[in-house]
Design a protein around this nucleic acid. Structure first.
Length: 381
DNA sequence: TTCTAAATGCTTGGGGATAC
DNA sequence: GTATCCCCAAGCATTTAGAA
């Protein structure tokens, strides 16, 4: 199978490339591909698939750069029309429809072949040492490398390539554009479990630990020693909890403690002591959202911050993810159709001539149809 | 297409407040 | 007195918009 490809170069024609086995059945019109073009590599857009080519020796398509077509068949058709109508190269018409960053530009990749090569040139020595240390590097990396300190490394590469010390290959950079993604956060537990975990939300509180132990006691009264042992807190914490009116201490030996807070209010008191309402609000908001929520929106609505969310993540209550967002710069705009202003008599006279001519051309000239590859294809230069 | 400035978000560290 | 938490500012990286 063969692909007709419009390469990203100022040339008029499309070129035939054969489709290698690994891409067989995976290429269709609109796909962005990488191909060999002349002595370098180039980006191209598949504009047609055919089972034959008039070219005797075709080069292979090197790679499919995006699984999704970057232009539709309608856009390809429009590009053909533009190319014919305005006598412009097809590739130029096609590339008008793509964002600038969809291709990453060209560069060279320099690979060290002979590690033991000796040279008196200081720049060449530095370049070899850099490649030995960091492995193959592209031109952009060489330009920013501190070891080369902004010196003209290209001459050194050229000289070393002639001596077969390094290999310099022209490569294409990956696309600079990529989908815009936002960080999102979602509930990791069932919404009806939120209130079961709510009492443990927030920071550490020994008073809360003690109150929880006393509230969990199957008996009305609990031995003070047992409460302190099970909660691991000191007597001072017990006294403070009593002074705040949450528990009652009974004199006597052994000493007993009973719950003063109504059982139905224990959760509320625990959350107060642990300062957990902030976290409860976050979980409730995420439960209401039902799906991953942009982290920025959650910040704004609950006044939380990243450390709050990380805490909930550590406890397995929420999880972070990413969502792709689509931008529509015209979404918030309201376009009201307007009526064209009336022409002056002079403008009217000129327009009537132009309009008549346009109608005559439309009637007498068949609309341009997408041309076949010139002469059935040609060989890439 | 490239450069620049502004906006935004994240991390880090310091200092103060609070709980124990 | 100590540990922990929270807030804030600074620094840095990234993104975005606009100008040339």
């Amino acid at each position: 199978m063969y692909a007709q490809i419009a390469v990203n170069a100022p040339v008029k024609n499309t070129f035939d490339y054969h489709i290698p086995p690994e891409l067989d059945g995976r290429l269709k019109p609109g796909h962005l591909v990488q191909v060999a073009f002349g002595t370098a590599q180039q980006h191209g857009i598949v504009v047609g698939i055919s089972d034959h080519s008039d070219i005797e020796q075709t080069k292979p398509v090197l790679a499919r750069l995006d699984p999704r077509p970057v232009v539709t068949e309608q856009q390809i058709e429009l590009a053909y029309w533009m190319s014919e109508r305005y006598l412009a190269p097809l590739s130029a018409c096609l590339w008008l429809m793509l964002p600038p960053g969809i291709t990453g530009g060209r560069d060279i990749r320099v690979t060290l072949l002979d590690e033991d090569y000796q040279t008196n040139d200081e720049l060449e020595q530095d370049l070899i040492a850099l490649l030995k240390r960091r492995g193959p590097l592209v031109g952009k990396q060489l330009s920013t490398a501190k070891a080369l300190q902004g010196r003209d490394w290209r001459k050194a590469v050229e000289a070393l390539a002639k001596a077969d010390v390094v290999e310099s290959v022209r490569v294409l950079n990956p696309p600079r554009v990529r989908p815009k993604k936002v960080k999102t956060v979602a509930l990791a537990i069932r919404p009806d479990n939120i209130h079961a975990v709510a009492r443990h939300l927030g920071k550490q509180s020994r008073r809360a630990d003690l109150l929880e132990v006393i509230a969990a006691s199957p008996d009305d009264a609990m031995l003070v020693d047992d409460a302190l042992r099970l909660s691991g807190v000191a007597k001072g914490t017990l006294n403070r909890l009593a002074a705040e009116g949450h528990i009652t201490l009974h004199d006597g030996k052994p000493q007993y403690v009973t719950l003063k807070t109504p059982p139905e209010s224990v959760d509320e008191v625990l959350m107060q002591l642990r300062d957990g309402y902030k976290y409860l609000r976050i979980l409730e908001r995420l439960a209401y959202a039902r799906e991953p929520m942009p982290i920025k929106d959650l910040y704004a609505e609950t006044r939380c911050n990243l450390s709050d969310l990380r805490k909930l993540e550590d406890e397995g209550l929420i999880f972070f993810s990413e969502s792709e967002v689509w931008r529509d710069s015209l979404a918030a705009r309201d376009f009201v159709p307007t009526i064209a202003p009336a022409l002056t008599p002079e403008q009217e006279a000129v327009w009537s001539v132009i309009e008549a001519d346009m109608k005559w051309r439309a009637w007498s000239t068949p609309p341009p149809t997408p041309p076949r590859t010139q002469g059935g294809g040609n060989t890439p230069p």
